[in-house]
Amino acid sequence: MVVPQPVKSVSPHPMIEMRHVHKWFGEFHVLRDINLTVNQGQKVVVCGPSGSGKSTMIRCINRLEEHQDGQIFVDGIELTNDVKNIEAIRREVGMVFQQFNLFPHLTVLENLTLAPIWVRKVPKKEAEETAMYFLERVHIPEQAHKYPGQLSGGQQQRVAIARSLCMRPKIMLFDEPTSALDPEMIKEVLDVMIELAQDGMTMIVVTHEMGFARTVADSIVFMDRGEIVESAPPQEFFAHPKTDRARLFLSQILGH
């Protein structure tokens, strides 16, 4: 069972803490004893072969998936089955998906104001001003009155990032944000993410973009078969991977 551990006294405030987290899909053990601490302002890049549990791990943080053992704390709140708790955490955690998941029946502006109006109870005018501010930040204010279907993939993903930011989250989760994009659009999305990182946002990014990882990440978490195999600063991880599995993975994705 869970052994109570002394909480490490780190000087910055821990935003996310996962302690001995386990999860199963039926019989399949997808997450095995995950321990992860992300401090305020820290940027963590999660990488690993497909099916290694990266997405599942970050989806546990805002309860899109339920963990079955262990504890998860987000900004000091423990994630339990309490609906109020889950809602409180989801308000603090923004998420960007591989498939964008914009609401196709709403304009870009309405996509951005929906949650602030209904969840944060922000007046519509104020919500729209905030939305325009973040559309400027992702460099597409001129698209505000279009529908998502009229935008390119890269533009849609930047709208999705702005939509999350409109809720003023303390943490941003990115689940393979560039994997569904055409190569020429990857850069425009990564640029927005780099700007966001420079502003001090706490970020967890699941990605295969190792260039991005090198520039932005404070630490790289390498996962395989549901475990965190390695966790190190990027220079160290890329130069001297400690395990064979990480070496194999790096040779496969950097090999050509």
Partner: peptide, 23 residues
Amino acid sequence: VNQGQWEAALALGLRRGQVLRLV
């Protein structure tokens, strides 16, 4: 309706009833 619509709306903090009604 794509499951991703549910996930995106829930991740934004909307309640299930709101997701059903608004999205």
